[in-house]
Design a protein around this nucleic acid. Sequence first.
DNA 1: GTTAGCACTCTTCATCCTTGAGTGCTAACT
DNA 2: AGTTAGCACTCAAGGATGAAGAGTGCTAAC
Lengths: 346, 346
Amino acid sequence: MLDDRKIRVLCAVIDSYLREAEPVGSRTISKEYDLGVSSATIRNEMSDLEDLGYLNKPHSSSGRIPSDKAYRFYVNNILKAEKIRMDVEKKEDIKRILIRESREIDELIQNSAKILSAITNYTAMALSPQIKKMKLKHIQLVPIDEREVLVVLVGDSGIVKNTIFRLDQDIAYEQLERISNFLNRKLKGLTMSSIKGVMSGEIFKEFYDYKSTLDRIIPVIIDSFERNNDVEVYLDGVTRIFDFPEYRDTEKAKSFISFIEDKEQLLNVLLNNTLKEDIEVIIGEENIYDTIKDCSLITATYKLGDMTIGKIGVIGPTRMDYLTVISSLKLFSANLSEIIEMLLKR
Amino acid sequence: MLDDRKIRVLCAVIDSYLREAEPVGSRTISKEYDLGVSSATIRNEMSDLEDLGYLNKPHSSSGRIPSDKAYRFYVNNILKAEKIRMDVEKKEDIKRILIRESREIDELIQNSAKILSAITNYTAMALSPQIKKMKLKHIQLVPIDEREVLVVLVGDSGIVKNTIFRLDQDIAYEQLERISNFLNRKLKGLTMSSIKGVMSGEIFKEFYDYKSTLDRIIPVIIDSFERNNDVEVYLDGVTRIFDFPEYRDTEKAKSFISFIEDKEQLLNVLLNNTLKEDIEVIIGEENIYDTIKDCSLITATYKLGDMTIGKIGVIGPTRMDYLTVISSLKLFSANLSEIIEMLLKR
DNA sequence: GTTAGCACTCTTCATCCTTGAGTGCTAACT
DNA sequence: AGTTAGCACTCAAGGATGAAGAGTGCTAAC
């Protein structure tokens, strides 16, 4: 579709624009990029590229800037093909820092966002592990007093969730103990999200003696999962957006930050998409929210074993250093998965 | 020190400037505030007020704007004296909403910040209850497997803190059980912060049989308090700062948001100060951080019983609607204390 | 197909001027 | 002695103008 020279011109425009944040003229390219043709030829090529939708002009006598389509082409065809390989040394450096600074998983995720933002100079965000995907390692009912019971759920990633609930009738300590043991036997090893189905089903039949008690406790436990949408989103470097000339305008900065501050939208954006690819790049208009249609969002997943349990990503103007961001993210993706596994076996 | 007319002029300047955000001229005052004197007289008064440090001029031929000293005078002498009384109806409205929307304490605090920001149009922040001030209601050691133990601490406000720790030696279930009971007996009712002292002291003597086990467990529990500085800060309406003309400038907005985003600084500011007054007003230069020397910060406390356990506040430009903010905060302070008590007795 | 050359477009920036709001001072008034 | 009117002066804000510069698109020649 695009011949070789058009691609080289396009890449030159992108490269220049990524660095300078100014519309790129034909003369700039002919002087600074060794394409072996004159500015007039490049002018013609750029005109073609504009017709094809890869370049835009802010006004009739200005240089060109890359369109979303250009960035998409760049990411899919130029970057994917070549040179994104991991800098092993850098990876290990970061790994060392992360391990040194992080004692718990949430702290690890938060530190990752911090370092990622520092490395890339963009706003970074990271999702804490999703508890619904965890396997249950232990469940315990702890009596606090005659009327209060604490349900403690421990996941295999060491994440703990607890809920206190009150009963309208006393429960004997031994009874709780037996229910605790029973639930443990039945539920241990299941993923948190599958527990719901099991709980409402067979358990009652198998453990009929305690039906009246279970009747009261189980809804509480299920409810605790229902409400358990509290995946934490860690942000770092929010104000870096101000460093980009495209956000000099207060209105734009405001709408960006409003978006970032809205946890719900942020979760939608981070969780909505497929999780199929390890690295996902969403460019400008591809975003589902209008407020960030001039932003690009790049996310990577991290895993526990072979299960994807969380995400880490970067958001910034579409004029983004895709190469650096993507390679940084690959590195974080790998590191996080490794460190989490390590933390758990510690 | 200030005669009556000077005070009236000063109040007029403040009133006008709070509303218009523009330097106030003598003519404006003589026309819009019924002081019964001509603009020339007001001009003389304003000149005096400038000499006394209550007014400033952005440039030699502009109107005056109030200084920090003026706002301080206004808050201390004008507002304190009169008209800050609680709008009981409004208080009850808000109380109803808060109760309806909040099931847990943390949710309550977060919702409070949200509503406070919506009411005042400033950035609101709220501190979750400080766990160190809580009384311990229950402590439980839950065995997860042979080498792992979960320590669960339940505070009297229902806040739960847990830490998993690993032992280098197996512990029998019954032994844990007995330690658990023992710790409960010993520590229940103490404030979290006083536990540290007790733990490292007498316990060993009284329970010598378990010394070897306690030796390993206790440091972990203490450590969990040490690290337990994780008071949550909830923010809401961060981007409202953009609505104020004094923050049109991107640099200013950036430094404000950088400050707000830095949890550590924020905690310092919120916790550093005395807690003596129910309502605390910090104006401009009185702030300890340079980045917010053109902001005012108004905070209120909320209590559990007679113990102050948290704070809620508002931050914005020194040109702030002190009256509205202070009366709103009084109302939230009262509501929060009442609702928390209610939630706990539920 | 490529290139040089040129007319044309459009933004940016500096300069200049006008306008208007506001002050400070002085002299007259009560 | 305090108050006021009047006036000269200052300064910021806004609009108009014009030159400079970057860039394009087209044409004609290579």
